[in-house]
Write a protein that binds this DNA or RNA. Structure first.
Lengths: 236, 236
DNA sequence: GTCAATAAAAAATTCGATATTTTAATTTAG
DNA sequence: CTAAATTAAAATATCGAATTTTTTATTGAC
């Protein structure tokens, strides 16, 4: 197994799974976030068993865990369903992401040391490179998402508020489902790229207010794009 | 089984569990929040099986679900542990609770209809009654927690932001572990009672700013009390 | 006595089979 | 023909045993 293959996007920096249950969770999470398992889909165990070649017991544990963070819904005696998507939830998640990202960013900026700076710089440059690359649309989206994830993760990585980070992670993953929609709808990388640059500068200067301003624009713009994409999806 | 016995506090308005897995989750959650299963405790399956008379499979599912929301930690191949408690986390959770409670409250105040008002009024009066009652310390704490929970739940019950409520729930339960500490340490019901009254008034008047001001004081005061209690616990 | 290697015990994880519940199909009464 | 009731099929949830991994205890070399 190559390094690249194991570095599943989104799931974060979680190391290679040691148990079937853990692996199932990572796979399910990625597939739901990527939209391969669509919102509202009934997650029948037989189907999942075939798909992932993992037994029912670890699959159920993985689903339970995802239910805890809200990516799937556990219906008593009626199995699991991929949680739905709607414009209302997109807005809700966008605002929460903003709130939590700001909290995490504040703490991270005030604590970040040189190692943190280097991580931020490195991840930024990989992201920049991904934005300019000319892969196929499919592959490029995956690469972009991963680099985008890494960059934002790097920015808050000096934050020591465990719960803030935990909740931010939950919201980030949820929000990502929607971001994907808007990415496909509006393939405008230009403006986003500028925002990332501004974010990098603000972070390295420890300019809290500037960073917050940029991230606010950044997230709000995403929310708007998601809204448009959802509207477009309704009336095709 | 009597109604009262089934209405386990904290776990929210979740109806009576239909599956072992669900029941296990509610029992575990309550026991962890109440501190019966102490922070850091290794949750061995044999032990839990004896305690709750539930098989390993549903127990593991319940634990996985709690791991998703962060009440327990799942350690690969090494079982589950009750997540730890510290002064840092108490502060973190306090601030998050404030943030999320404000978001939920704002939305709820702007939407609440007459049914909502009635629910708020009713739950307030039960809380007031509980505060004045003269049961044994143990029983009174449970009753108070339950009524306190119901009141705060009622306040935000008109909020339609699903994710905000979900995260608020997670943080509320976590924070409750700490509140319990401070409750035992400082049995000062007086001030809290005034705060609740002020909260009720502000809510019924739809006075957003006032409600936010009160809840801010309310939560910050709790955080301070928790800090003192933890400090006292360190040097007995 | 300390450390590493090995063996035994305990614990966690997973599998396969079974029991229970839900869903779909079919029948039957009105 | 519709709607309740029954039956059959599918899917979920749970159990108990088998497997794998971790932890503890023991042995033996230095």
């Amino acid at each position: 197994m190559s390094l690249i293959e194991d570095h599943r996007l989104i799931t974060g920096s979680e190391s290679v799974a040691r148990s079937h249950s853990e692996r199932a969770m990572q796979l399910l999470r990625a597939d739901i976030v990527e939209g391969i398992l669509a919102p509202g889909l009934k997650l029948k165990l037989d189907m999942l068993r075939d798909r992932y070649e993992i037994g029912a017991a670890p699959l159920r544990e993985a689903l339970s865990r995802l239910a805890g963070e809200g990516l799937v819904i556990a219906q008593e005696q009626r199995g699991f369903v991929v949680s739905g998507m709607s414009a209302e939830e997109a807005n809700d998640l966008g605002e929460l992401r903003l709130l939590l990202e700001i909290e995490a960013l504040r703490d991270s900026l005030s604590r970040g040391n040189e190692a943190w700076q280097n991580r931020v710089i490195t991840s930024y440059h990989w992201l920049e490179r991904a934005e300019q690359s000319s892969l196929s649309l499919e592959g490029r989206l995956d690469e972009l998402e991963r680099r985008n994830f890494d960059f934002h993760e790097a920015l808050v990585s000096a934050c020591e508020r465990r719960w803030t980070l935990h909740l931010r992670g939950i919201v980030f993953r949820q929000h990502e489902r929607y971001r994907r929609l808007s990415r496909i709808h509006t393939a405008k990388t230009r403006l986003v790229s500028d925002e990332h640059r501004a974010l990098l500068d603000a972070a390295l200067e420890r300019n809290e207010d500037a960073a917050i301003a940029v991230i606010t624009t950044h997230i709000r713009r995403t929310t708007r794009a998601v809204g448009e994409a959802l509207q477009a999806a309704d009336q095709p």
